[in-house]
Design a protein around this nucleic acid. Structure first.
Lengths: 347, 347
DNA sequence: TGGAAATATGTTAGCGTTCTCACGCTAGGC
DNA sequence: GCCTAGCGTGAGAACGCTAACATATTTCCA
C-alpha cells in the first residue's frame, strides 16, 4: 500500500484540453503564445491550467526536438571561492537568455568527470561549461563531447581540443607581476611553494615565477621549489605548511615566498608563525587567487586576483555563440590578472 | 549554413535494431537486461549499439513513466565548505543507488530558489535535497513540493512542513559547549558576534550561547551582541570585522568572543590584530563550523565542528526511504556537534 | 462582390522508448 | 499426437507534446 494522499500524476495538456473544452493543440498554443488563439479561449485555457496546476513536461517537449534550455557546469569541487564566482558570472549571462544551469562535481576524479559529463549528455542538456583541471582523461572526455557536437567551453585552461573554446586568466602574467613585485622591494632569494620541483613545468604560475627571476638576472635554485609530490591539481593549506617548513629548514632560507595559491600561502603563513618567523619583516609571502579570506589573514595577504566572475560571463557568452550556431573554429580568451599588494609583502 | 561536420543526431533504438536485424523491442530488452533474449542476439545487438555509440534517451524513457534516476540538490551558494562536504556525503549514498545528482544555487534569493526548484520539477527529477537557509518564501516553495508529492529532505533546519524530513546538527548544543568552554577557562564577559541584537532569537547558535551564560549565572548584556543588521542568513569576515571593532570600542569590552561562524571569527581575529589586541592573551575567540582554514589562522581557531558529511549521507538515506515509498510521517534527525579547542582560546 | 489574406480551431502524425499482447518454437508430460 | 509451459521475438500502441496540414470563419481591399 502506498502512501499517496494527493498522489495524482501531474496534469497533462490533454487534461487541460478536456477541462476547457478545446483541443490539445489549442492549449499548447495558448500556453506557449504561439499561433492564433482567441482571447476568450486563451482565458479559459489559462484558468483551467491554473486550476489543474498544469506544468508543461519539458522532457516530452524535448522529444519533439526542442531544446531543454539547460546547460551543465562541471566543477572540480565546490569548496573553493573560485567556483562560486564562476557560476555567478555564468548565470548572469545565461539566465536572462532563459537557460537553467545544473552543476555537477567530480571530486577531482577523472572517472567521476566522465560519469558527470555522460549524465549531462544523457539528460540532453544544450551545452556544457567545464572548469575542471586538465587531465589526460579529461581531454578524452572533451573530445568525446566535441565528437557528439555538444557545445562546450572550457574555463581555466586550454581545451586542447578543436572546436572547443577556452577562457582563462593569464596566470603566467599574474605570477610574473607578483614575483617582480617581490624583487622590486629588494628580495633576491625567492621561494616557490605549491608544487614539487619535478612537476613544475606543467604549471603556468611557475613559469611566470621563473620568467620574473630570469628577467631580474636571478638564478633559479632547485631547493627553493617546494610542494607536494605527484603534481596534484591543487595545493592545500597543509601542503603550503609542509613546504614552508621545508624551506625554513634550509641553511639559507628564502626571504620571500610566492605561493601557488592563497590556500598554500595561508599554510605558509602559519608555518612562519609557528617557527616564530615574522611576516613580512623576516619573510615576505605572496599568494594567488585573492580569495575573500586573503584580506583577513595576519598579516593580510598580498596576492594576485584573477577576474573569475568575468571569466564565467565570457565563457557563457562563447557558449551562447556556439548554441546559436554562429562561431566557427575554437577561440581562446585570455584575461589579465591584477596584483593586490597587502601587508604580507610590505617593504 | 550550419557548422555541422559530424552533426548526425545520436543513434536511436531503431538505428541499432536496423543494424542488427532485429526489432526495436528486442534491442530494448537486450540493453536493459529485461525479458528473454538469446545470447547470440544479445551479442549482436550489443556490438551494434557500441558501433553506433548508442545511448538510451532518458527523456523518452521518462515519458513512459520511468524515473530519471536523478535528484536535485539546492544550495544557497557554493562558496562555503559546508556545501562541498554536504554534497560529498549525499553522493556517497546516492551514487551507488544509481542516482545522478544535479546542483542548483540560489544566490540566497527566494526568487531564485523558487525558480531553481521549479526547474528541478520541470526536469522531472525524482527528489530534492534542500540546504538553503530558511525564509518565509522558502517554506512556501517547500509546501508546493509537498503538494506535488515530490520526495524532499531539508538539511540544516527544520522543514516546517509535514511530510518533509529534516536533518540538522545541534547548533544549540554546539554553541552551548563552546561558550561553556570559554566560561570554564575563566571568562565572564563573553560577546556574541554575527547577528544584530534584534534578530538574535531566530538563531539557534545564539540560543546555545544564551543558555550557557544562564547556566553559569552570567547575565546577558545587550551591548555584547554585535552583528550586521537585517542579514540573518549568513555572516562574512567583513561582518565579523565590523562587529569586533564595535565590541572593542566598548568601555568594558568582552574578554572572550563566540562568533556565529568561522568566517565571522576570522574577521574578528583580524580586527583584534588591527587594534593590537593579542589573541588569546587579551581576548579569546571561538568560531563555529571548523572550516579547513580554521586550523591555519593565527592563532589557530577554536571552533565547533558539525558532522556535515554525515548530515549529507543521512539526508540521502531519508530521501531514499521516501523514494521507495516506505517512510510515513516527517522525521527529524538531529546530530551532535563537537568542540574543537585550539590556541585562540588557550587559558 | 469576389476572393485572397488573416484569424481561429481541430486532426494527424511522430519524437524514442517501453508496455502489452500475440506469435512462433522447442520440450516434456499425458 | 495434443496440450501446456517456458523461451525468444515482433507488431502496435502509448507516454505528453508540437509541427504540419486541414478546416472554418471573418476581414478587407481590388
Amino acid at each position: 500500500m502506498s502512501t499517496n494522499r494527493t498522489n495524482k500524476k501531474p496534469a497533462t495538456l490533454a487534461d487541460v484540453a478536456r477541462k476547457s473544452g478545446v483541443a490539445a493543440m489549442t492549449v499548447s498554443r495558448a500556453i506557449n503564445n504561439s499561433g492564433y488563439v482567441s482571447p476568450e479561449v486563451r482565458k479559459r485555457v489559462m484558468a483551467a491550467a491554473r486550476a489543474l496546476q498544469y506544468r508543461p513536461n519539458m522532457l516530452a517537449r524535448q522529444l519533439k526536438g526542442h531544446s531543454l534550455k539547460a546547460i551543465g557546469i562541471l566543477l572540480p569541487d565546490i569548496a573553493n571561492p573560485f567556483s562560486t564566482e564562476l557560476v555567478s558570472g555564468i548565470r548572469e549571462v545565461l539566465v536572462p537568455h532563459g537557460y537553467t544551469t545544473f552543476i555537477a562535481t567530480t571530486d577531482r576524479s577523472s572517472e567521476e568527470e566522465r560519469a558527470a559529463l555522460q549524465s549531462f549528455v544523457d539528460h540532453r542538456i544544450d551545452g556544457v561549461i567545464v572548469a575542471t583541471r586538465g587531465t589526460r582523461f579529461g581531454t578524452e572526455s572533451l573530445q568525446s563531447l566535441a565528437k557528439q557536437n555538444i557545445p562546450t567551453v572550457v574555463v581555466g585552461r586550454d581545451s586542447g581540443v578543436a572546436r572547443i573554446d577556452s577562457v582563462m586568466a593569464d596566470h603566467y602574467q599574474g605570477a610574473f607581476d607578483a614575483v617582480t613585485h617581490l624583487i622590486s622591494i629588494g628580495h633576491r632569494r625567492i621561494g616557490f611553494i605549491g608544487i614539487a620541483h619535478e612537476d613544475r613545468t606543467s604549471l603556468r604560475r611557475y613559469a611566470g615565477y621563473a620568467a620574473a627571476l630570469k628577467q631580474a638576472g636571478i638564478a633559479e635554485k632547485k631547493e627553493y621549489i617546494a610542494g607536494p609530490p605527484d603534481a596534484p591539481a591543487f595545493a592545500t593549506q597543509e601542503d603550503g605548511f609542509q613546504a614552508m617548513m621545508q624551506l625554513l629548514d634550509l641553511p639559507k632560507p628564502p626571504t620571500a615566498i610566492f605561493a601557488r595559491n592563497d590556500f598554500a600561502a595561508i599554510g605558509a603563513l602559519r608555518a612562519a608563525h609557528t617557527r616564530g618567523c615574522r611576516v613580512p619583516q623576516e619573510i615576505a609571502i605572496a599568494g594567488f587567487d585573492n580569495i575573500p579570506l586573503a584580506a583577513f589573514t595576519t598579516p593580510p595577504l598580498t596576492t594576485v586576483e584573477q577576474p573569475i566572475h568575468e571569466q564565467g560571463a565570457q565563457a557563457a557568452r562563447l557558449l551562447l555563440d556556439r548554441l546559436a550556431g554562429t562561431a566557427g573554429r575554437a577561440r581562446t580568451v585570455v584575461m589579465h590578472c591584477r596584483l593586490v599588494p597587502r601587508e604580507s609583502t610590505l617593504k
